[in-house]
Nucleic acid binder design. Structure first.
Lengths: 289, 289
DNA sequence: TCCATTCTGTAATAAAAATTACAAAAAAGA
DNA sequence: TCTTTTTTGTAATTTTTATTACAGAATGGA
């Protein structure tokens, strides 16, 4: 094997050939790697809820003669991580089936991603990030049949960083009430790729008439809603498939989230801290029941 | 509360009160911390050019009862280092490049995508695509807080190609009725990345008890639901941001959709044709109003 | 339903690691 | 320069850890 395989990779690749106890142990190891494997065999066994011989069986299954040899590679890897954290690049050539559909797909989607992200108008990107980071301006989001998932994801993640973020409901006939709340201070983020949805365009026109600022994320053929949008970000959607990909659009959304976070890091951090404590409290609550 | 003193701090502070051999050892430890102290007492002694009792004398001088106690604090400190997303962001922010955030983000997400897709077990991928392409087997999908969007997207797209595809509702207390419909013929597709959701794991165990075949899409630390999953596909989730990315997972889902479509192209094409006509009829209907 | 095979945990054993005892070397003070 | 104290390494002992043997449980196939 030409490619050096990390312990984590070995554990993942071997997962399907493991017994139940081994899989439980491997999940535990991977769940808090590398900390979970720093102790002794009996410590690891106890933490994972398996026996000590199971630990030895697993590392032998991974190709080591015993746990000391496994630990040696662990220490080597930790040395490499500390020496050069961003040193590695995985290659495609090692994969034995270059014509596998997954590999053909991968090439295409990565090209799309490259194209989408490299061809963004950075001024538009920065403007949109600034608008969405502005907490005095409520943000409403909407999407179509496939893009609604992206809109929902964006809403969930953006809501972690700021309040006044809402996803419009699915059914167009519930949209008019939302219009009543919108004014010049509001921002509407629309996700619309082919097939463009007439109901989205109608709503965009009505929102525009209310003075709402409209951000449109669409494909390269540009949704008809562009006529009333102030800011347009485009994504590639073509792959060797019968329909479109949303991977570049999701990546664009995550890039926006990252930029918004940078602008409001101090406040975002406080919200994250609070949310962390909510999680901990909920877990504690569950434990006490 | 006084600030917790790290092992490195202790070593530095104690340097002036050390003997020659101890100072030689401490310099060695600090020179390549923490790697230099991961081995056994005799290994460390040999590497530093002192005797094993000298190692024990030094850690006792630092206030530990023996080397195992020293090692315990070492492991605790390493655990803290690998802790929270906030720490991750601060690390990334410190190393920021002069480039635009979007370009930095692009590099990272493409690396992740490369890593995710190149490291897939093609046999597991093909097996999962085959299972999901089998129209005699109903497919149920579920996701967590962020991954629900991916599950929803997968459901919408898969439903274009075949019937008997259903997304479980959002609220866990609505899940048990869905269990009543599931048997050994059914397939459950679970999206679960950290933070893993206990309700998902509980449902997975119940579904497993019913004989349902479980496909798990998770991150590289492997969701605890892995214990009852027959097929596991992993995705990278780490980006230079305070939380995770789902771009690789979305790409993996689209790759599966593409593979499923290839297997059933003739029937998929017919469904697409019919859907095209539905669209056209609806547009015509709207034009006539 | 029964039998054979595989898996897993417990206990025993072997190996490794940490600590202690002791003696020699080095350093400091008179 | 000599004596005393401190430091340090070697060897022995103790403790801990890893591995192996074995038996019971679980699973799968006939």
């Amino acid at each position: 094997m030409t490619q050096f395989q990390t312990l984590e990779d070995k554990l993942r690749m071997a997962m399907s050939g493991m017994t139940r106890a081994e899989r439980q142990l491997a999940s535990h190891m991977l769940g808090n790697f590398p900390l979970s494997v720093l102790g002794s065999v009996s410590e690891i066994a106890q933490d994972a809820g398996v026996s000590a011989p199971t630990v030895v069986r697993l590392v032998r299954k991974l190709g080591f003669s015993g746990y000391p040899e496994f630990r040696m590679q662990l220490h080597e890897e930790m040395g490499e991580r500390l020496a050069s954290p961003i040193a590695k690049h995985e290659k495609w050539a090692d994969n034995s089936q270059p014509d596998h559909p997954l590999n053909r797909f991968a090439t295409s989607v990565i090209d799309n991603l490259n194209q989408t992200l490299s061809q963004q108008d950075l001024r538009v990107f920065d403007t949109v990030a600034g608008i969405l980071a502005d907490k005095s301006r409520p943000v409403h989001l909407m999407g179509g049949r496939l893009t609604r998932s992206v809109a929902e994801y964006f809403t969930t993640a953006l809501h972690v960083m700021r309040s006044d973020v809402a996803l419009l409901p699915s059914l167009p006939n519930t949209w008019p009430p939302a219009l009543l709340e919108m004014s010049e201070r509001d921002v509407l983020v629309i996700f619309d790729i082919r097939r463009y949805e007439p109901s989205i365009m109608q709503f965009a026109e009505l929102a525009h008439a209310q003075g709402v600022e409209i951000v449109l994320l669409t494909d390269r053929w540009i949704s008809p809603s562009a006529g009333v949008a102030q800011h347009i970000l485009t994504s590639q959607v073509e792959v060797p498939s019968a329909w479109d990909t949303i991977v570049p659009m999701v990546a664009l959304v995550e890039a926006l989230l990252s930029a918004i976070q940078e602008r409001n890091w101090q406040e975002t951090r406080e919200r994250l801290d609070r949310m962390e404590r909510f999680y901990e409290d909920m877990l504690l609550f569950k434990r006490m029941r």
